[in-house]
């Protein structure tokens, strides 16, 4: 009888521990796949707003989102031909990205930027800096880095930046109440 009870208690304990592991926290996990000015802006508005709402924030930058985190001033040597080509063709950081629509050879993007300034909307550069101050965690997809030939030495100095793969993101997403793909 006593043994049976103890077995039941042990079973319940195991279930409770499992519950704790799988509990969604007050966290938002975002995949930033797009490298467009407008979409990245939306991602950062949500990220900074989420901190204000008391959420922990994780942004996972992958594919076209990865170049957003390049430092425009850093130069790296020793890339292979494809890497050098991608390096030249892709934007170097938040200051060089374009609108997903109405870019019109750069005119549309320039117009949008001046409009944002006039309306006091924070620029992507300011948003990224603010995200860092607010403790937004950034993860960078290692596979995208490798595909595009980016080196760690050319990425921005961000307070909380980790290079990782999909499993790390999924672990964060499993524990988040909100998950977004942008």
């Amino acid at each position: 009888m006593e043994e049976e009870l103890q077995n039941q208690i042990a079973g319940l304990k195991a279930q409770l521990e499992n519950l704790a592991v799988n509990q969604a926290e007050n966290k938002i996990s975002m995949i930033v796949f797009s490298g467009d000015l407008d979409k990245a802006l939306a991602a950062f508005v949500i990220a900074t707003g989420a901190v204000a709402m008391g959420l922990e924030v994780v942004m996972f930058f992958t594919f076209w989102g990865t170049p957003l985190l390049r430092d425009k001033l850093k130069k790296v040597a020793g890339k292979d031909m494809m890497g050098a080509m991608f390096g030249t063709m892709l934007p170097k950081g938040t200051g060089q990205v374009k609108l997903s629509k109405m870019n019109m050879a750069g005119m549309g993007t320039a117009m949008m930027k001046s409009l944002m300034k006039k309306k006091n909307v924070a620029s992507l550069e300011q948003m990224l800096e603010m995200a860092g101050e607010l403790g937004v965690k950034i993860f960078v997809c290692e596979m995208s880095m490798d595909l595009m030939g980016f080196k760690r030495e050319e990425m921005i100095n961000y307070p909380d930046l980790t290079y990782c793969g999909v499993a790390k993101f999924l672990e964060e997403a499993m524990h988040s109440k909100i998950q977004l793909f942008i």
Binding site: V45, M53, G54
Partner: peptide, 13 residues
């Protein structure tokens, strides 16, 4: 004044 989303809640928080 003059600050758009998300700045008001970010600043107040």
């Amino acid at each position: 004044k003059g600050l758009p989303c998300p700045m008001p809640v970010v600043k107040v928080s």
